[in-house]
């Protein structure tokens, strides 16, 4: 049953957002530009100080993961891969755009012409969305 979240009062919306896991926040941010801006505003006001963002780039794949507390397991929120790994899809040359997939991994996977630049893109995206800096990098 649909729930028109954007018609709820600000207090309610903030409360709902506060219950979302980091991977759900990143997924929701891709719904529309408006929702992306709304989430960004939410995290500008309520910085999740205990969250630790990590960037991992190995095995021809970039990923951003988040630990929401000291003892919890990191949650991978987004992945960047080369477009060649996305069967049946291509991108124009010299574009910094991406193709998006939401696979069984339950998180968005973005495919770029340049996987390294793609990794930078996803890191910038998540840090911008959550107003948090990268805490650790693993290459």
């Amino acid at each position: 049953m649909p729930f028109p979240i954007l018609r709820t009062p600000f207090v309610v919306l903030s409360e709902i957002i506060s219950f979302l896991e980091p991977n759900e926040i990143v997924s929701a941010s891709f719904c529309s530009k408006d929702v992306g801006r709304l989430l960004k505003r939410h995290y500008e006001q309520r910085k999740p100080l205990e969250w630790r963002l990590s960037m991992i780039d190995y095995d021809a794949m970039g990923r951003v993961s988040i630990k929401t507390s000291k003892d919890c397991k990191p949650i991978i929120v987004i992945l960047a891969k080369h477009i060649s790994q996305f069967k049946g899809h291509t991108l124009e040359d010299h574009t910094n755009g991406y193709e998006r997939e939401f696979a069984s991994s339950k998180r968005p996977v973005l495919y770029f012409n340049d996987q390294v630049l793609g990794t930078k893109w996803i890191v910038d995206y998540v840090t911008g969305l959550l107003t948090r800096e990268v805490f650790s990098k693993r290459l």
């Binding site: 729930f3 028109p4 954007l6 957002i17 219950f19 529309s32």
Partner: peptide
Amino acid sequence: CKQVAMMVKGKSPEEIREIWMIPTDAED
């Protein structure tokens, strides 16, 4: 609010858009 947040557990952006009745950029 917890129940509303649970609605989108493991859902794709397209599914979230449908569940939460979020208009697309074009519709906006």
